[in-house]
Amino acid sequence: MKITSKHLSALYDLTADQFNAVEMHSFLNLINVIQLQLEILKMETGKKELFTDIISDTAKLARDIRKSEKSSFFPENIKPFQKKVIDLISYLEKEVNDDKGIQELQDAREILIEVFKVMDIRADELKKHSSNPGQWLSYSVEEFKNDFQKFFHAVEKNSNGRYRIVQNIAQQEPNDYLVNFEVDSELNGRIVMPLVFKDVIRDLIANARKYTEPGGSIQVGVFQKKNMLRFIVEDNGMGIPKNEVDRIFEFGYRATNVRHLPTMGGGFGLTKALYITVQLNGDLWIESEEDKGTKIVIEIPVPEAFVAKGFKKTSISSESN
């Protein structure tokens, strides 16, 4: 199904706060991961009173991010919060005496440090995008693939050992996700896109993982043609009920067959994907069948300035068209 003008009301009806939440979607997802880790630690340590303030701070940070305009949110905004989280874990490590408790804290520290690293990277990307929203960047195919290998590693790390992400079917165990990630280019081995679209790719891959049971498979493809970038993500997960596909781009809407899942997401990843696709004058298609999976295709036109230079430039403003 190609998304047409009838689906764009999902964007026109956004409130100011919802619009900001869409633009800050990646940060909200990371805050949700942090909150989940803190809730787990609160239960494991039994020291609920020590977590009251930091969990309250986490909720406040999420509210602030929802209301923030991307141009006013920079890495320094989250540094005090990061320090407070790590300081709490350091304190608990001195208080806990048993080996199991110490290991749980060390594991949590490792996960949270990884999340904070990703958060710093997203904040830096946001800052760059805010200062030059029309900028497109050029990546070598190898560079782009390596960036996403780091992303897959971070997702796996955040699972706390619940699953692995493998790319060789011979390595797949019953609880592993098999992810096939292919990137190709017809022109000088390069891929071009705005930073914000790279974010959309990450979000949609994360969605595919969330709504596919461990043991499932996810196919991801990025293909650079001369005048167009094509992205596809397809999973064999839970899919979307047929009568709900038209609503899935509405802010906060989650299909009825997945509402029982504790995804920690806000339910607007697809709203963001549509919003960015429309901003970039692109097209989006979605095919989904309940209990069989979902396939999303996005195509965006490439600025002529990149094409004219044979994709050799590392960056260019779309206003140069």
Rank of each mutant, 00 (worst) to 15 (best):
K128S: 09
K79A: 13
V196S: 14
V183P: 03
N160D: 04
I55C: 13
R259W: 01
M238C: 06
F81W: 11
L270R: 03
Q35K: 07
K94W: 11
F181E: 03
K312Q: 05
T212Y: 15
E93I: 15
V166M: 09
D107P: 06
I248A: 13
K309W: 01
T271N: 13
R259P: 08
K198S: 11
V307E: 00
G237Q: 06
W136R: 06
A170H: 13
R230G: 03
I191P: 00
P262M: 10
M264Q: 01
I78F: 04
I300P: 05
S9C: 08
D124Y: 14
A59P: 12
D120C: 02
S320Q: 02
R109I: 15
D184P: 00
K313E: 00
I65P: 06
E156W: 11
K84V: 07
E76L: 12
H7I: 15
N32H: 13
R164Y: 12
D176T: 10
G101E: 03
F231H: 01
S320I: 04
W136M: 01
Y139W: 01
E299M: 00
E290L: 06
D176V: 14
V200H: 02
L36E: 08
I89F: 12
E182S: 11
H25G: 13
N20G: 14
V222K: 07
K225A: 03
V85N: 10
T4S: 14
E299V: 09
K70A: 01
E95N: 09
V220N: 01
D124C: 13
V33T: 07
A208S: 02
E173V: 15
G282L: 04
I102A: 12
R190Y: 00
P241H: 09
V258S: 11
S138F: 02
L14S: 02
G252D: 10
L178Q: 03
D120M: 12
Y177M: 00
I65E: 05
G101R: 10
S72K: 09
S288L: 03
L229C: 11
Y253T: 08
Q172C: 04
V196M: 01
E143G: 10
R109P: 04
S130G: 15
L195H: 09
D87H: 13
N257S: 04
P241Y: 05
Q167T: 13
D246L: 07
V33F: 10
K210E: 11
E39F: 04
F231R: 05
A108N: 11
L38F: 10
